[in-house]
């Protein structure tokens, strides 16, 4: 059986809020290492990969591999019934028909109990190769969100160009063009504004802004975001969570004209 207790319901609420417009039904794969999810969007252009390690929970117990097939719209409805600071416990049997959620207020003597009916989901699983990326950019997640939103007003696509010490986001649209350049930046006083660009070779790739704007819904999960790029491979956008957990998005590039 599965029993997983989260100190703060907000983590799961934010994860589901961040991915539910990209994927609708997905399996939460539970085993002794934690709870994982991998799902592609309908067009097979973007992929979500979530890992909530067992250390994220306290306690965490899962004796067998259990796949919880959940409709994310339903999941979101139930998670909205939890206060952000509630303690959240997920429970399921070994061959479950439902997943149970218990929300407990640490300050009040309130216990809320919900069940969500599970679905059988036949999901394709993709093997993602370990990649040494040519460019890894760490930047404030809010900054990345703003860039994507701003440029999406002008164009469907953005070119991300990483070169020594700088990364440039460039778009060409019907009404005009836009370009935002960021340089390596590190401040002791405001580390949350740091930009770090690690580069082994220059990279230039073009991506659909519609998907990037969607990924940025995860910005509330982490103050910083990591963009990993290599020529001719999908972009990795990673939000790191506590205890080595993460929410990752992969996006296939567009080819030039």
């Amino acid at each position: 059986m599965l029993e997983a207790r989260l100190e703060q319901a907000s983590i799961l609420k934010k994860v589901v809020d961040a991915i539910k417009d990209l994927v609708q039904d997905c399996n939460f794969d539970c085993n002794d290492s934690g709870i994982a999810l991998q799902a592609m969007d309908n067009s097979h252009v973007a992929l979500v990969s979530m890992m909530l390690k067992s250390d994220t929970f306290s306690p965490f117990r899962c004796d067998r591999n259990i796949a919880l097939g959940i409709n994310l719209n339903s999941f979101q409805k139930v998670l909205r019934c939890a206060q952000n600071e509630d303690i959240l416990t997920l429970k399921a049997d070994d061959s479950p028909d439902v997943v149970s959620l218990v929300f407990e207020s640490s300050e009040q003597d309130r216990i809320s109990e919900y069940d969500i009916k599970l679905m059988d989901i036949d999901q394709e699983h993709l093997g993602i190769p370990d990649t040494e990326y040519a460019a890894t950019i760490t930047m404030p997640s809010g900054e990345f969100q703003r860039i994507c939103r701003d440029l999406s007003a002008l164009s469907e696509s953005v070119a991300i160009e990483a070169e020594k010490n700088a990364v440039k986001f460039v778009c060409n649209g019907d009404i005009g063009n836009g370009a935002i350049s960021l340089r390596n930046h590190s401040s002791v006083e405001k580390p949350e504004q740091n930009v770090n660009i690690e580069l082994s070779e220059p990279v230039a790739l073009t991506f659909s802004l519609k998907y990037l704007v969607n990924f940025c819904k995860a910005s509330g999960l982490s103050g910083s975001v990591k963009l990993c790029l290599s020529n001719e491979v999908p972009l990795l956008v990673e939000y790191e969570l506590a205890s080595n957990s993460y929410l990752r998005f992969y996006l296939a590039p567009k080819i030039g004209d």
Partner: peptide, 14 residues
Amino acid sequence: SSGQRTLGLFFKKI
């Protein structure tokens, strides 16, 4: 839209 590749070109099904 035009020019958009899919992930199947890069990641294999397992």
